[in-house]
């Protein structure tokens, strides 16, 4: 029995004028239906570009090789028209730049109507009903009166909630969340995390949560992949990895995190040798 998403030896290279950058160097993992996985690592470790490659969204000059099989279908090297059915409906993605995530010239309502009528093939009245339900589901107060509002009338947190509504509205089998709270206030972050966790349960979606925040990874995931310099250096059950880290980098990462120290004296800076030039 193969997994819902099977990633085999994926490599992502960027050819630049100053040579080839190996952003991802041979990564393998798989995800089953309804499973939640956190991908942790420092910035520059390749986690964001790996997340994008799952939907075939790596842009020139990036080049993906290896194999990404979602629901029996190969993503690597597929044409746009083969990828379009997978995007959104198979795997939906929430990105980190919440402020730039919605089209400024269309209302919130028309964003939701667009995915529901075009992608989900609903009638206009069904779609309108569902759109309001989604807005309520992601915690927009007075959904009806805000339906015709434009993105610039929404706060950053509210915009990210709409982006989440736009992702789950497509009923994806896997939700990929790429640092969805990075651009937001700390006070707003907790609400968004709770929302994602609740929706994952309610909709039975798989979740790939990309983050550099260990505490968040611990809260949200069953399994964790630790990325360092384009490789997965450790993966396993979240609790197991956090209690008994095997790889030197994971240990260093945990030792440098305030949540894992009882006093500031226990805090260890990340050893120089692990710091990436990013």
């Amino acid at each position: 029995m193969s997994a819902l998403l099977d990633v085999e030896d994926v490599r992502i290279d960027f050819t630049t004028r100053r040579g080839v950058v190996h952003a991802v160097r041979g990564v393998s993992f798989s995800i089953d239906q309804g499973e939640s996985v956190a991908m942790v690592g420092a910035s520059g470790s390749g986690k964001t570009v790996l997340g994008r490659s799952l939907l075939g969204l790596v842009e020139e000059p990036g080049e993906v090789s290896g194999s990404i099989i979602f629901n029996g279908q190969q993503v690597v090297g597929s044409s746009e028209s083969h990828l379009q059915p997978i995007r959104g409906l198979g795997m939906a993605m929430v990105f980190q730049d919440a402020l730039d995530g919605l089209n400024p010239v269309y209302s919130i309502g028309s964003h939701l109507m667009e995915i529901l009528t075009i992608r989900m093939k609903k009638s206009r009245s069904e779609a309108r009903h569902e759109a309001l339900r989604l807005m309520e589901e992601v915690g927009i107060p007075n959904a009806k009166s805000r339906f015709h509002d434009y993105p610039h009338q929404f706060s950053g947190g509210m915009r990210q909630r709409i982006c989440i509504a736009l992702a789950i509205g497509l009923r994806p089998k896997i939700l990929i969340a790429d640092e969805p709270t990075t651009a937001l206030d700390v006070t707003v972050q907790a609400g968004i995390l709770d929302l994602i966790r609740r929706l994952q349960d309610d909709y039975g979606m798989g979740l790939i949560f990309i983050t550099h925040d260990l505490a968040v990874a611990q809260q949200i995931s069953e399994r964790v992949l630790v990325m360092y310099n384009g490789e997965i250096v450790e993966q396993g059950e979240t609790r197991e990895v956090f209690q008994h880290p095997k790889h030197r980098y994971t240990r260093a990462l945990l030792a440098s995190h305030p949540a894992h120290a009882t006093s500031w004296r226990d805090l260890q800076p990340m050893p120089e040798s692990f710091v990436l030039e990013a």
């Binding site: 746009e80 995007r87 939906a92 990105f95 402020l99 995530g101 736009l166």
Partner: peptide
């Protein structure tokens, strides 16, 4: 190259749209 066009692409809309 903006975020919202990339997002729309990630929702599976075709290039014409």
């Amino acid at each position: 190259t903006s975020g919202f066009v990339r997002n729309a692409r990630a929702r599976g809309f075709n290039s014409r749209r």
